[in-house]
């Protein structure tokens, strides 16, 4: 069984007029069906307003379907009695680290989650130490969160979720406000959690370069899933991605331009290294 099952999910936002009656609706998700396997690293790519954040909030039961179902570990988000368990299994990290920090000390920040789900005190401290180690922030245990860099803050936020021992972490544009170094730190942490702890990662982003190492890339546009495959296949749709307001990796774009000009470069090039190898091979053949 898949860890997350999304079946014919629809979500509508309502607009209200001054008297409080519905004056319009906007369909943010239109018939989305997906299943996410346990242990996978899945990236969801789309521009602002594509529905990707709405989708994320459904998996954590922050939103409930207008129509259709979302199941995490077989538990339906419509079932109010299961919501706490769903949030324990599928933890969420948001875009702005400053909006998520509530404690004065890093270790208290990380303890907040497990404390809320009723973990015994002693075990909480054990989990906090463990979670901080997994995100590489042990040295900052007694520091104040507001003296940390953006990347460090996001790693603390991730540790707060890890301390709840989730099966899945959903991250809604966690790097949008970070500099390149902070971005790399967060990405490295996520890949480590995925590889070593087998935590399923669902990374929502509009930075295509963060998705090339994912197992699977889902592209959303206008509330629908428009592409869903391994990165090399998704990024071979250069024209389509551009038309949908997304970037492709520079190496992929370069290979595409050269193919258009008649050079025999393979599809599916994602990294600069792959491009260089393919190009040198072509040079040698000539």
């Amino acid at each position: 069984m898949a860890l997350i099952d999304i079946l014919h999910l629809f979500h509508s936002f309502y607009r209200y007029d001054e008297s409080g009656s519905v004056s319009g609706t906007k369909a943010a998700l239109k018939d989305v069906t997906l299943s996410i396997e346990a242990g996978s690293f899945v990236a969801v790519l789309g521009h602002n307003g594509s529905g990707k954040s709405t989708l994320a909030k459904h998996i954590n039961a922050l939103f409930l379907p207008s129509k259709g179902d979302v199941k995490v570990n077989g538990r339906n988000t419509r079932d109010a009695g299961e919501v706490l368990l769903i949030r324990r299994d599928a933890g969420m990290v948001f875009q702005n680290p400053d909006n998520q920090m509530i404690a004065n000390v890093v270790e208290e920040e990380v303890a907040f989650g497990p404390e809320n789900i009723g973990v015994p005190t002693e075990e909480i401290w054990e989990r906090v130490g463990d979670a901080l180690e997994r995100v590489g922030m042990t040295a900052y245990r007694m520091h104040s969160p507001d003296r940390l860099s953006g990347g460090q803050k996001q790693r603390v936020a991730i540790a707060g979720v890890v301390a709840m021992k989730p099966q899945c972490i959903i991250l809604d544009e966690p790097t949008a406000m970070l500099d390149p170094m902070g971005r790399r730190e967060v990405l490295r942490t996520l890949h480590e959690l995925n590889e070593k702890e087998k935590i399923t990662i669902l990374l929502i982003t509009h930075h295509m370069d963060e998705t090339i190492d994912a197992d699977r890339v889902i592209v959303m546009d206008d509330g629908e899933v428009v592409l869903d495959d391994v990165p090399s296949v998704v990024f071979s749709h250069v024209e389509e991605l551009r038309n949908r307001g997304l970037d492709v990796p520079v190496a992929t774009q370069l290979a595409y331009e050269l193919r258009q000009k008649g050079l025999d470069l393979p599809e599916g090039i994602l990294s600069e290294e792959e491009f260089v190898e393919a190009y040198l091979k072509l040079c040698a053949e000539h």
């Binding site: 520079v250 190496a251 331009e257 260089v276 190009y279």
Partner: peptide
């Protein structure tokens, strides 16, 4: 990224003339 690709290619023995546009994808292509 394009500048990095050119420097990798140069390190592997490919020579490019002076003054080429390494900064844009179109120029690099």
């Amino acid at each position: 990224s394009t500048v990095r690709i050119f420097s990798m290619l140069r390190a592997r023995g490919e020579a490019f003339p002076e003054g080429i546009d390494e900064l844009s994808v179109e120029g690099a292509a």
